[in-house]
Design a protein around this nucleic acid. Structure first.
Length: 882
RNA sequence: GCCCGGAUGGCGGAAUUGGUAGACGCAGCGGACUCAAAAUCCGCCGGCCGCAAGGCCUUGUCGGUUCGACUCCGACUCCGGGCACCA
């Protein structure tokens, strides 16, 4: 008997599926549809293990649903615009388009070798002019619908290269190529008005009941609705500026009598106005601007303030003034760019007050504290309590104090309650070549003129150069200079391109009619939308998903999606990452798993980091051991943490090698084994080999198994052993079905292992055995098919079937065969398991108690005493309390 | 810094969602087969004590609720994801 030969088998079935167009999706009103989608890949060059895991999971769902009778749509495409292509262009003098399409070709081949049940006829790349033409049409419709505007926003500016940098390109506050300290600079940019939809996007989260709770929480927090008070401080008289008042936003107006300072953003108009007038302020502000734009950077930077010397007057006491600071941690983008500080009840304000010697007056007293003696140490008090030291608010709860404060401010005409969102408008302008051109023209007379739809697409010019930093579109005068579509005068194209998040915010809708000459085709969108199951990395939990939700709403408003699709993803699953150990040489360079050799530690347990030579294992054994390593040059290597596979840490394993060595089914099987899909999985060579051995084991067992003829009737005689095999079969069908349905693929795999263990131990050859065994193997083939489709087809054929398994329905189970008549129940005494009894499944309380008291084990622990209480949970457990 | 997760044997994990902790897999150990190796098959496999029967301990740490806690509550520690121009 020959071994199972994945290298020959897999391409064979891939061809059969392709020739029969097994996965081509067509509208069919007679069947329920099911749209399963995995987040499409960026064509970086090669697929990585994260892709294998993501697409293996999606394929399990797609094949399972197809077997269950659904009309499945399972498409694939390419998120093809982005910075890496431009970086490649600069470094290797290749055109970003050529580089991208080459990568797509390579990755398409790799993905096809995985045997995914994809409808390749719907494939597109977002850099295809046919795709971005429709994106431009969408932009124009959104512009007309008032969903787009222009806004000043800040970018990272590299003063040496004279380019805008992505946050990723700012390393320790310096440009990644020039090394120059980055500055913040303001630019007028195109934005999508997502903040107009903040309330709607927030409340609709409640309806996303098939999304992970953590993602819903993250989205809620990101949108960040807060109810607060916006009010105006009067300025104390000063000689520097004519500035009557300072408007601030706060959610803690109950603490206004604990205020000890006001603070404004360095970019606040008042701060700018004072720059030439207050000694040192210009320098302070400049220093604040010498920083990247990322929130993490701003928030972790040392908190610094600059006393402007100006003061504001407390709204409720004309004799009470406090200083105005410029502070580097106040964001101009949130609220009014100005706050008041109450150090006692806000940690950041407290740190600031301690640093600059400002008053700390507690105004909220914790319930268990005495108002007279309550003091603030190094921790601000942010809990509940009653108000103290606050004149007319004294004794109130926080909520009552807020209400009273808002009422009085409104009465006085200096402030009003206001809902604020953390969510900012979505800036989409990018000063880069490799993106979707924004289809507008700037005319000196007409202003901003949309490109007429008849002139779309605004295609990217091919003849561009990347020898200079900056946006090549800016330099390309032939492309840039055009007549105004309205008046015909000389005008210029917008040279900014769109954020690549735009491309990925509607591709799921485009898949329903990928070749239409409008963004979508209503009949197709209406049939296929929504995505029934969306699968992707949790790293997209906020931005991509929020933008897509916004886009779906925008597309509905502009007539491109039906109303039911304003929430486009019915169910979401966020899978974990694929991780691997990292290896670092003494000089700090990262090493790939292939570059390290492993030494054998004697007890086989802990890795021997320090050990040099004594027991270097031969290379072919290497991958089975997790121990210390050395490079070929005999350096010692440090084993770093197990982290997400990434090029920069070089801890990657190439799926192509694995597929070549073991086959796609092995890679898929291993990826689905062991780790729950939502968690990170560590790739280990040993795990892959284990998966490979399992397939061989099933193959061997089936080749040696004696079965009845295909389609033979159920025999009359049923031997107990054969009956138990049938029970195992039906239980396994039940479990695997449930586990696939609930995304517990690791448990489905474990169920199949258990089943195969049972199956291969049954050696009878009576008539009912032959029947039970055929039933078992037929079920096995069908249960494994979503995970190891080629292998399943092969054993299906071996079982004698003439038609491919891909067209076979999912197996059903007989519920009577999944239940045991007798069950074992643990008996606890004072909460510790001491005995076990066998009882009928339906046994009642009295019967169970009788059996418990009759048990010698129980009697031994009871020692003649009468139990105080016996807790019986029928079908579960008994606890005897003495 | 802020938001969101996670932690169970040597390792990945399971535990019917408050009811037998460690299913299943990997690694390891012992044995069979073999001239030998690979492959395969059989057995063992959380720790401590014990000849055994059995007992005690054990789900990151500390405390609480409960007849009963991996599961619920409170306080921490460490690790990971996101933070708006990486995709």
């Amino acid at each position: 008997m020959s071994r199972y030969n994945a290298r020959a088998v897999e391409p064979k079935w891939q061809r059969i599926w392709e020739d029969s167009r097994a996965f081509a999706a067509t509208r069919d009103e007679t069947k329920p549809k099911y749209y399963v989608l995995e987040m499409f890949p960026y064509p970086s060059g090669r697929i990585h293990m994260g892709h294998v895991r993501n697409y293996a999971m999606g394929d399990v769902v797609a094949r399972f649903k197809k077997a269950r009778g659904f009309n499945v749509l399972h498409p694939m495409g390419w998120d093809a615009f982005g910075m890496p292509a431009e970086n490649a262009a600069m470094e290797r003098r290749v055109h970003p388009g050529a580089w991208t399409y080459q990568n797509i070709a390579a990755m398409r081949t790799q993905l096809k070798s995985m045997g995914l049940s994809l409808d390749w006829e719907r494939e597109f790349a977002t850099c295809d002019p046919e795709y971005y033409a429709q994106q431009q049409a969408l932009f124009l419709d959104m512009l007309e619908a008032g969903l787009v505007s222009r806004k000043i926003s800040v970018v990272n500016w590299d003063p040496v290269d004279n380019t805008v940098l992505a946050n990723e390109q700012v390393i320790d506050g310096k440009g990644w190529r020039s090394g120059a300290p980055v500055e913040r600079r303001e630019l007028t940019q195109w934005v999508f008005r997502i903040s107009d939809m903040a309330d709607e996007l927030l409340s609709a989260i409640d309806g996303l009941d098939k999304w992970p709770e953590k993602v819903r929480l993250m989205q809620r927090n990101w949108i960040g609705r807060s109810e607060g008070l916006q009010f105006r401080f009067e300025m104390a008289p000063n000689d520097l500026v004519d500035w009557p008042e300072l408007e601030v936003y706060t959610t803690r107006h109950d603490t206004l009598f604990g205020a000890s300072f006001a603070a404004i953003s360095p970019d606040h108009p008042l701060s700018r106005a004072l720059e030439g007038k207050v000694d040192g302020l210009a320098a302070f502000n400049a220093e604040c601007r010498r920083m990247g734009t990322s929130e993490a950077e701003l928030e972790t930077a040392e908190k610094k303030g600059f006393d402007t010397g100006l003061r504001v007057v407390h709204p409720f006491d004309p004799n009470w003034t406090m200083p105005i600071y410029v502070a580097n941690f106040i964001l101009m983008d949130y609220g009014t760019g100005a706050i008041f500080g109450c150090p006692a009840h806000d940690q950041r304000d407290l740190d600031f007050a301690r640093k600059y010697g400002l008053d700390v007056v507690p105004v909220v007293c914790p319930p268990d504290q005495d108002a007279a003696s309550f003091e603030i140490g190094s921790d601000a008090y942010i809990g509940p309590g009653r108000i103290i030291n606050s004149r007319f608010l004294d004794g109130m709860s926080i909520d009552d104090a807020k209400a009273e404060m808002a009422r009085r401010m409104l009465e006085m005409g200096c402030g009003e309650a206001r809902v604020n969102f953390r969510l900012r408008d979505w800036g989409i302008s990018r000063q880069r070549y490799w993106g979707c051109p924004i289809p507008v023209i700037h005319c000196g007379d007409c202003g901003i003129v949309p490109v007429p739809k008849a002139d779309l697409p605004v295609k990217l010019p091919d003849d561009v150069t990347f020898d200079k930093p900056g946006n090549p579109l800016d330099r390309h005068t032939g492309w840039r200079n055009v007549p105004c579509p309205k008046c015909g005068a000389d005008a210029r194209r917008e040279t900014d391109t769109m954020d690549t998040f735009v491309d990925s915010s509607w591709y799921f809708a485009r898949f329903t009619a990928p070749h239409a000459d409008t963004p979508t085709e209503m009949a197709d969108a209406d049939y296929w939308m929504n995505v029934d199951q969306y699968i992707g990395g949790v790293e997209h939990a906020i931005l991509h998903l929020l933008y897509s939700r916004f886009f779906a709403r925008a597309m509905h408003r502009t007539g491109h999606l039906p109303e039911k699709s304003i929430e486009p993803f019915n169910a979401l699953f966020t899978q974990g990452m694929v991780t691997h150990e990292t290896y670092r040489a003494a000089d700090g360079r990262w090493l790939t798993p292939d570059e390290v050799k492993i030494t054998h530690e004697e007890d086989g347990r802990e890795p021997a980091l320090e050990t040099r030579d004594p027991q270097i294992v031969p290379v072919d054994k290497v991958d089975l051991r997790r121990v210390a390593r050395e490079t070929s040059t005999d350096e010692e290597v440090e084993i770093g943490p197990t982290i997400k596979m990434s090029k920069s840490k070089r801890n990657t394993v190439d799926p192509e090698q694995i597929i070549e060595q073991f086959g796609a089914d092995t890679a898929r099987w291993f990826m689905l084994s062991d780790s729950p899909p939502e968690r990170d999985v560590e790739w280990t060579a040993a795990g892959a080999e284990g998966a490979w051995r399992f397939l061989q084991r099933v193959w061997r067992a089936l080749n040696e198994a004696k079965l009845c003829a295909i389609g033979a009737p159920e025999p009359q005689l049923v031997l107990p052993m054969a009956a138990s095999l049938r029970q195992a079969t039906h239980k396994t069908i039940m479990r695997v079905s449930r586990n696939i349905e609930s995304f517990a693929f690791n448990k489905a795999v474990a169920d199949i292992y258990t089943f195969v263990n049972t199956l291969t131990k049954e050696h009878g050859d009576s008539e009912d055995y032959l029947f039970a065994r055929r039933e078992a193997y037929e079920a096995l083939a069908r249960l494994m098919a979503p995970m190891t489709p080629h292998f399943a087809e092969e054993i299906w054929q071996l079982l004698g079937h003439a038609t491919p398994l891909v067209e076979a329905p999912w197996p059903s189970y007989d519920a009577d065969l999944t239940r045991d008549d007798m069950i074992s129940m643990p008996v606890q005494i004072n909460g510790k398991k001491r005995a076990e009894i066998q009882v009928d499944r339906e046994a009642d309380r009295e019967t169970i108690e009788g059996l418990v008291m009759a048990s010698p084990d129980v009697a031994r622990f009871l020692g003649g005493k009468t139990p105080r209480k016996i807790i019986v949970v029928p079908g579960r457990i008994v606890n005897v309390v003495i």
